[in-house]
Amino acid sequence: MKEIETTSPACARTGIAGENSLSELPWCGKINLRGNPQNTGFLRKSEKALVVKLPLHPNTCIDYLDRTTYWLGPDEWCIHCPIGEVGNAISQAGQALGRIHHSLVDVSDYYTVLRLEGPDAEALLAKACPLDLHPRKFCEGTCAQTRFGHASILLHRTGRVSGFNIQVRWSFAEYVWDYLASGMQVL
């Protein structure tokens, strides 16, 4: 069996220009969960087994203990957890949910998360992202799936400094990185 690739194309890169910085966050576990939240059995059992709170409102995420759960759709969530816990979390949740209609997929090596920080973070993202990123509209803690250039991204404004976590498909990481890095050169 082929070993799982644990380094994305953006790994070990750092980009700093002025007060802005770009980096890749350490690899974390990512679980894609699907199921019907109107089914209280599904909601209760998946939250208990995965130790998360599932956000039910669009464009929101919930931090709970060491896991963060992002709303992806009316019946779909992405859970970030420490990488070593993915296998156990999936098998426990699978057992707990049993015959309740659901889907649990390990997508840890499908996405990577870039971190963009600095006073010009909004301006840099606005170069290729159509979302209104003004803090009045897109405040601390908000997340949204949108695009950056041709790449689909999951954007999350978080952290003490003005900054964003950008979850992107592994194969698009280099593209997004280069786009942001070249933007930093011409600010």
Binding site: P58, N59, P74, P130, L131, A144, Q145, T146, R147
Partner: peptide, 10 residues
């Protein structure tokens, strides 16, 4: 109907 107002390019 779920995410609210977004740009056409999405």
């Amino acid at each position: 109907p779920w995410c609210g107002q977004r740009d056409q390019s999405e």
